[in-house]
Computed example of a mutant assay.
Amino acid sequence: MDEREIFVAVQKNGDGDLTAFRTNAGRDLNYEQAMTAIHDGQIAGVNIFKGRNGKSYIRGDADGDPSNNLDQLPLF
């Protein structure tokens, strides 16, 4: 059984960009903290990818279900 946390809610800035994440364990992580947690294998269902601009971004794993897309999570 996967013991890793998952993201259950997000915060966005005025442009709609994700800025923070809440996990099912109740942890609130800013973007950098979330990147570190994902890199360290603490968060399930997401990955880090490098954009065309060379910056790294967080995205949900592609599973064909748009309802669990990070943009669709409730705000906190």
Rank of each mutant, 00 (worst) to 15 (best):
Asp40Lys: 09
Glu32Gln: 07
Arg4Glu: 06
Thr36Ile: 13
Gly45Ala: 11
His39Lys: 13
Val46Glu: 11
Phe49Asn: 09
Asp61Glu: 15
Gly14Trp: 10
Pro66Ser: 08
His39Asn: 07
Ser67Leu: 13
Asp15His: 07
Arg27Thr: 02
Glu5Trp: 10
Gly51Glu: 05
Tyr57Ser: 03
Ile58Trp: 01
Leu70Gln: 05
Glu5His: 08
Gln72Tyr: 02
Ala25Gly: 11
Gln72Val: 01
Met35Trp: 03
His39Phe: 10
Glu5Phe: 11
Glu3Val: 15
Arg22His: 02
Leu29Gly: 02
Gln11Pro: 00
Thr36Pro: 03
Asn68Asp: 15
Leu75Lys: 15
Pro66Cys: 10
Arg4Gly: 10
Ser56Asn: 14
Ile38His: 02
Ile38Gln: 05
Gly26Gln: 03
Asn30Phe: 03
Asn69Leu: 12
Gln11Asp: 12
Gly51His: 02
Gly60Phe: 06
Ala37Cys: 07
Glu32Ser: 14
Lys50Trp: 01
Leu75Tyr: 12
Gly16Tyr: 07
Gln33Tyr: 01
Ala34Ser: 03
Asn69Ile: 03
Asn30His: 01
Gly54Glu: 00
Asp63Val: 13
Gln33Asp: 09
Met1Gln: 15
Thr23Ile: 02
Ile58Ala: 04
Arg52Pro: 07
Asn68Met: 12
Gln72Pro: 00
Lys12Gly: 04
Thr23Arg: 03
Gly51Phe: 08
Arg59Leu: 01
Gly16Ser: 10
Phe76Met: 03
